[in-house]
Write a protein that binds this DNA or RNA. Structure first.
Length: 549
RNA sequence: GGGCUCGUGGCUCAGUGGAUAGAGCAUUCGGCUACGAACCGAAAGGUCGCAGGUUCGAAUCCUGCCGAGCCCA
C-alpha cells in the first residue's frame, strides 16, 4: 500500500512534469516474478499513443528522471520487456512496515476507502420454516465476512436478516404443525397436499400442544394460525442460535409482515404510480419493468387483491433506502438469479439506480466421502448447518466457504473438511499463527523478547526470506482494499495462504531462538508482526487465530 | 425455446488487458540428536472448452458454437 502510493506519487510528478496526463488505467503492482523487481509500472506503455513514442523510449525518459530524483526508497529502476518500469526498493523502506504494524496492531490494514458511507448487508434471510442448512451457511459466512471487510475499509455497516413471515409458506408451516398435532393424538387427520415433513415439525407440534392443551379442539383456522405463530417463533429462535454459534452477526431482524401491516406496500405502489412506473390493467396492478429492460411487466397486485412476493420486496427495498443507506448489498442463493434484473429495475424505478448490489451464492454440494447427501427442506431430508458445524467446527466451515469465489458452486465434503491436511487450508494458516506463538513462548523461557524498532536490530533482517515476508506484510492493506472493492472475501484467504506459506518456509530456513541474541530478537519482531497480520486477516474471515492447536 | 452463471494440469481452485499462466491435493524423490513434520525443498504435470474477432499485447474484452448447472416459459 505504502509502496504503491509512494511510487504513484513519484511517477505522477514525473509524467506530469513532462507534460503528459497520468493515464487512468496505469497500474503499479507486484510483477509475477521476483527478478522483475518489487513493483512494476506499465505507465510508459499506456502513454505510447498519446506521446507518439515507443513505450521503451518513454520508459527511458521516466527512468532518467527517477534516477535524478535520488528517492531514498528506490534502490534502482529497470526497463524491461515491452516497456515496463521495474522498481527495486531499499530494505530500509520495506523494514518500516514493521513499525506500522506495531503501531496499528489489529487495526493494521484499516483504510478510509468508504468515507463512512452507510452500507447495509442483508444475508441469510431464510424463510422461518425450518432449520438452516449448509447452503445458508455459505451465505452467512460471506455476509458476515463482507461486513467485517467493509467496516475495516471505512464503511458504516449494518447487517440485516429479512424475515419472510407474511407469505404462503408460513400458512403451510402452520398447517404442517397442526397436522402433526392431530396426528400425535391419534386422530388420523387428512394429509395436507403440501407440507413440511421434517422431524422438527413433530417437536414443534409437541411444544405447541404442551402450551395450548385445548388446541386440538379449536376450529381449524385459528388453530392453524396459532401453530403458525408458535412455529415461526420457535424456528426463528433456532435460526438465531445457529447463527450465533456460527459466529455470525445480524443487527436488525426485519419482519415482512410489519411492512404489510404498516401500509408500506401501498405507499410504494403510490410512489411508483406517481413516477409513471406502474399502472392498473385487467383488474391487476402492474410494474412497468419493460421500461427498464425487463422482458415483461410484472404483477404487483393480482386481480383477487393479493399482493405478490415481488411487491413486498420492492416495498422492502424502498424502505431500506428510506432508512438512509447509500449502498445495499443483498446476498441471495443463485437459484434467485432470474430475480435480479427485476429487482434492479425496481430500485431504478424508485430513483436509486446503482444503490443495490446483489451477490449470488452458488449451491453447496454436501458430500460425505465423495457421496452426495440429498437436501430438501420440504421433504425434511437435509444436513443442518448446526450438525455440520458440530461435526467439522465453525472455523473449518467458514474458511472453506470463504476461500472460493461465491459464484462457483462448491463441493463440501465433510470427511475432507475434517482432515487436517492442505485439502483444508484453514489449519495451514492457523498453524502458522500457532507456530509463531510457540516460538514466542520458547523465547520467553530464555528471557528473550522482540527487538525494538532500531536500526541495529532491523538490519539483521537481511535475507531473501526476510525481504519476502516484509513485502507480503506491506501488501496486506492492498488485499483488504481489493476484497472490499470487489466484495470478495476470498482475496483475504488467498493472501493469508501466501503469508502462511512464506512464514513456514522462513521457519524451516532460519532459526529464531538459537540465533545470536540480536538476530533472535530481530526475528522475534518480524514473527510477531506476521502473527498480528495473520490474526487480523483471519478475523476478517471470522476465523479464530489460536496460539496453540 | 429464452435467460443467467460456470468451463484453467489427474483432482480442488487462484489469476479478469501485461512479461515464461500460479497454488494446494494426489504421484515420484529428498529433509526432524536445534524454536511444533498439521511443516519445508525438488521433480513431473497445462494447445486456459472450441473457432473467429478487437490491439502493440487476450486465460482475461466481443461474437458464434460445444459442454455443465440453475432460472423462466
Amino acid at each position: 500500500m505504502r509502496a504503491k502510493q509512494h511510487l504513484e506519487a513519484l511517477l505522477k510528478g514525473i509524467v506530469e512534469g513532462r507534460g503528459w496526463a497520468w493515464p487512468e488505467k496505469a497500474v503499479i503492482e507486484p510483477p509475477k516474478e521476483r527478478k522483475f523487481g518489487d513493483l512494476a509500472a506499465n505507465v510508459a506503455m499506456m502513454l505510447a499513443r498519446e506521446a507518439k513514442m515507443p513505450p521503451r523510449r518513454i520508459a527511458e525518459q521516466i527512468a532518467e528522471d527517477v534516477n535524478n530524483q535520488n528517492d531514498p526508497a528506490v534502490a534502482k529502476v529497470e526497463i524491461a520487456g515491452p516497456g515496463f518500469l521495474n522498481f527495486f526498493l531499499t530494505p530500509q523502506f520495506w523494514r518500516r512496515t514493521l513499525e506500522e504494524i506495531l503501531d496499528a496492531g489489529m487495526k493494521y490494514g484499516t483504510s478510509n476507502l468508504g468515507h463512512g458511507k452507510r452500507v447495509q448487508v442483508e444475508y441469510v434471510s431464510a424463510n422461518p420454516t425450518g432449520p438452516l442448512h449448509i447452503g445458508h451457511g455459505r451465505g452467512a459466512a460471506l455476509g458476515d465476512s463482507l461486513a467485517r471487510i467493509l467496516e475495516k475499509t471505512g464503511h458504516n455497516v449494518e447487517c440485516e436478516y429479512y424475515v419472510n413471515d407474511a407469505g404462503r409458506q408460513m400458512l403451510i408451516l402452520g398447517q404442517s404443525i397442526h397436522y402433526r398435532v392431530l396426528q400425535a393424538l391419534g386422530r388420523c387427520p387428512e394429509e395436507p397436499e403440501d407440507y413440511y415433513r421434517g422431524d422438527y415439525i413433530r417437536d414443534i407440534a409437541a411444544g405447541v400442544l404442551a402450551q395450548y392443551p385445548d388446541l386440538p379442539d379449536m376450529e381449524p383456522e385459528p388453530a392453524v394460525a396459532l401453530c403458525r405463530e408458535y412455529g415461526m417463533k420457535a424456528i426463528l429462535a433456532g435460526i438465531q442460535q445457529d447463527l450465533q454459534e456460527f459466529g455470525v452477526r445480524h443487527d436488525v431482524w426485519f419482519s415482512e409482515a410489519s411492512l404489510v401491516k404498516d401500509g408500506k406496500v401501498q405507499e410504494t405502489f403510490a410512489d411508483l404510480e406517481a413516477r409513471g412506473m406502474a399502472y392498473e390493467k385487467d383488474g391487476a396492478f402492474w410494474f412497468k419493468s419493460t421500461d427498464l429492460g425487463d422482458d415483461k411487466d410484472r404483477v404487483l397486485r393480482k386481480s383477487n387483491g393479493d399482493t405478490t412476493y415481488f411487491a413486498s420486496d420492492i416495498a422492502y427495498h424502498d424502505n431500506k433506502f428510506k432508512r438512509g443507506f447509500d449502498l445495499v448489498v443483498d446476498i441471495w442463493g443463485a437459484d434467485h438469479h432470474g430475480y435480479v434484473p427485476r429487482m434492479q429495475a425496481a430500485v431504478e424505478a424508485l430513483g436509486r439506480k446503482g444503490g443495490l448490489e446483489v451477490i449470488l451464492v452458488q449451491l453447496v454440494n454436501l458430500l460425505r466421502d465423495g457421496e452426495q447427501i440429498a437436501m430438501s427442506t420440504r421433504a425434511g431430508k437435509f444436513e443442518t448447518l448446526k450438525d455440520v458445524v458440530e461435526e467439522v467446527g465453525a472455523d473449518a466451515a467458514r474458511y472453506i466457504f470463504l476461500s472460493r469465489k461465491s459464484d462457483s458452486k462448491l463441493d463440501f465434503d465433510l470427511e475432507l473438511v475434517k482432515q487436517k491436511t492442505m485439502d483444508n487450508p484453514v489449519y495451514y494458516v492457523q498453524y502458522a499463527h500457532a507456530r509463531i506463538h510457540s516460538v514466542r513462548r520458547k523465547a520467553e523461557e530464555l528471557n528473550m523478547g522482540p527487538a525494538p524498532i532500531k536500526e541495529e536490530f532491523l538490519e539483521k533482517l537481511d535475507t531473501d526470506e526476510d525481504m519476502e515476508l516484509l513485502r507480503i506484510l506491506e501488501r496486506f492493506p492492498d488485499a483488504v482494499q481489493a476484497a472490499a472493492e470487489t466484495l470478495s472475501p476470498h482475496v483475504i484467504s488467498n493472501y493469508l495462504q501466501e503469508l502462511a506459506s512464506n512464514l513456514h518456509k522462513y521457519y524451516t530456513m532460519h532459526h529464531v531462538v538459537s540465533a545470536e541474541p540480536e538476530q533472535c530478537r530481530a526475528r522475534l519482531l518480524l514473527m510477531h508482526c506476521v502473527a498480528e497480520v495473520l490474526a487480523a486477516g483471519l478475523h476478517l474471515l471470522g476465523v479464530s487465530a489460536p496460539e496453540s492447536m
